[in-house]
Simulated scan of single mutants.
Amino acid sequence: MDQQPGGLGRAIQVRRAELGLKRKEVAERALLSYPYLSELENGTKTPSAKALRQLAEALELSQAELLDRADSSPVRPDHRQSTGYARDGLPPISITTGTGGASDTFSGSHEFEQLGRLADVVAATVRAELAAWARTSLPTLIRDEVRRVLDEEGRAHR
Rank of each mutant, 00 (worst) to 15 (best):
Q3W: 15
R80I: 07
Y36G: 07
T83I: 06
E18P: 02
R76F: 07
L40C: 07
T83H: 08
L19A: 02
T97D: 09
V75P: 04
G43Q: 02
G9Y: 05
K45D: 06
G43F: 06
S103G: 13
P91N: 02
L141R: 15
V121I: 12
R117C: 00
K50F: 08
S73K: 04
Q114T: 06
R155A: 15
E152P: 00
R148S: 09
V14L: 04
G100D: 05
G7A: 05
R155V: 04
G154T: 15
D88Q: 10
T140S: 12
A17P: 01
S82H: 06
V122G: 01
G98N: 08
G154A: 15
A119C: 10
L21M: 11
V26E: 14
E152R: 12
G116A: 12
P91D: 01
N42T: 10
T140M: 14
A124K: 03
R143Y: 06
A131P: 01
T140N: 08
S33D: 10
F112T: 13
S48G: 09
E18A: 08
R143S: 14
E152D: 09
P91R: 11
S62R: 02
G89S: 10
I93S: 08
I12W: 04
L138T: 07
D71W: 09
Y36F: 15
I12C: 00
T136Q: 13
D78H: 05
A119W: 00
V14Y: 02
E41N: 03
P92R: 00
E65H: 03
R158I: 11
A51R: 06
L150V: 11
A27H: 01
P47Y: 03
R158M: 11
A132C: 02
A128Q: 06
G100V: 10
T44E: 05
W133P: 01
E153P: 00
R158H: 15
A27P: 04
E25L: 06
E41T: 00
L59G: 09
R29F: 08
E111C: 12
T140W: 13
R147A: 15
R15A: 05
I142P: 07
A123Y: 09
Q13T: 10
R16E: 06
